[in-house]
Each structure stands twice: as C-alpha cells, then as structure tokens.
Write a protein that binds this DNA or RNA. Sequence first.
DNA 1: ACTCAATATTCAAAAAATGATATATAGCAA
DNA 2: TTGCTATATATCATTTTTTGAATATTGAGT
Lengths: 116, 116
Amino acid sequence: MSVDADTFFSVLSHPMRLRSLVLIQQTDELCVCELTYVLDLAQPVISRHLAQLKHAGLLLSRRQGLWIYYRVNAELPEWVKQLIEVTTSGVASTSPYMDDLAKLKSMSDRPNQNCC
Amino acid sequence: MSVDADTFFSVLSHPMRLRSLVLIQQTDELCVCELTYVLDLAQPVISRHLAQLKHAGLLLSRRQGLWIYYRVNAELPEWVKQLIEVTTSGVASTSPYMDDLAKLKSMSDRPNQNCC
DNA sequence: ACTCAATATTCAAAAAATGATATATAGCAA
DNA sequence: TTGCTATATATCATTTTTTGAATATTGAGT
C-alpha cells in the first residue's frame, strides 16, 4: 500500500473523515447510508469523503447488492494500523465519537437486517 | 492540554509541520534557525507553522537569548504521545524524514555550539 | 424493457489554508 | 541610546479544499 505519513495525516484532517474512520474501525464495516445517518451529512458529501479515504489506501469497499460497505484496509503498514488503533481507542470515550457510535446502534432499519 | 483528535490531525496535515514535529521529536529540541536550514523554508513560514503546532498544544517553546527552542509537550495525553512516537518511528527510515535528520546533523554552526 | 433505490461523479461557487512581503518585537552588545 | 540578530506577526494575493446541486451509474425488481 502506498500510504505515506503525509497522505495519512492530510486525509484525516477533515473532522468528518476522522469520524468516519473511527466509526468504521469500531464496527468493522459500514455502508454509506449508515454513515449518512449518523454523521447527518448529504449523501454526496459522505461519498466523496469515503472516496478520499479509499484513494488514500485507508479503506476498502465491497458491494453487496445496492449497498457499498467500507472497511479499514487490513494490509496497511503496521505503524499505520497502530495509528488507527491508538486514535480510535484514544477518542472512543469522547465527543463526538462516543455519540456517533451510540447513534449508530440506535439506528433502526440498518441494512443487513433489512434495508437502509 | 486541550488536544482533541481533530486538532491533532489537522495541524499535522501540512507536510512541513509533520516534518518539523518528527524532527523535533527525534532531537528533543530545535530552534527556528535549525528548522529553517533543514526544511529550506523562509523564516516567517517556519515561524507560522511552529506557532500552529504550539497553539494546538503539541509543542512548547522556551527562549534562550535570541533563539527560541521548540520541544514536544511532555504533558500531552498518553494516546497523543503514542501517536507521535508511532509516527516518528514509522517514518524514520523513509524520505524525506531520514534526509532531514541527516541534513540537521551535517549542519555547521548550530546554536548551542556557537550560533546560527 | 422500465423504474426505483443506493451510491458515485461532475462542476461551479464558497471557504479555508498557504506563502511572499513587509513590518514588529525582543534581546544582546557597543 | 543605537544597531544588529533571531523570531514573530500582519496583510494580501494565490492556491487548495470543500460544498451544493445536478447528473450519472449500478444493481434489483417488475
């Protein structure tokens, strides 16, 4: 993977991208509609942020029917994976990350159960 | 310290700020003239980047005569210190970080020895 | 084939970050 | 005080990033 530190930090320099990454790291996999719901952003905005995270090499995606699921790339360099882990556990109990996770869990009609 | 993850990542999203932080972490303390030399930037540019790192809580500074030395804030939250350490060791053997350190070591007339 | 739902992409406008230049401050030394 | 050096700050033009809105794509169902 072509993840240099430069790219890593600049792609995470946007609050919503950071929140997205943390949330995905905490849940293994999320689809666009779940992030749209939790972060309360317009769909094209989320899509573009996810595309940036993917282009930077941090996320991978898979399609399942109409949904596209994003997950953290498991083949990142060790130090990058560590940064993601340390960040996630560092912020887990703080706002807005804590609330994001709570909001996700309270979301009804999540896909995998049924639909978006 | 008021270092939230948001601030942390956005203040490090500029290549020169990241290089500065890594170099300072590797050397304990550096003055502005040393960074200006190594990074080959105009003095006001370096000063502003350092001010941003300081304002974000990552760096502290002390004056010694005409020079101002910057160092990593030792009282950062544990997870932030870990991020800095992991990043520094993650990039230490890569470019341009490796070369920056080499260039610093080859710098003559460093202060503390004599002057800038 | 047609339609709908989820996601992606394009493009112009708005907002934010950056750098050049000039100027200010602070300490030292004569 | 004056002058010099290291660093900081202010202003403005430029570049980069981000967003809103419209449109395109892709797959599922009929």
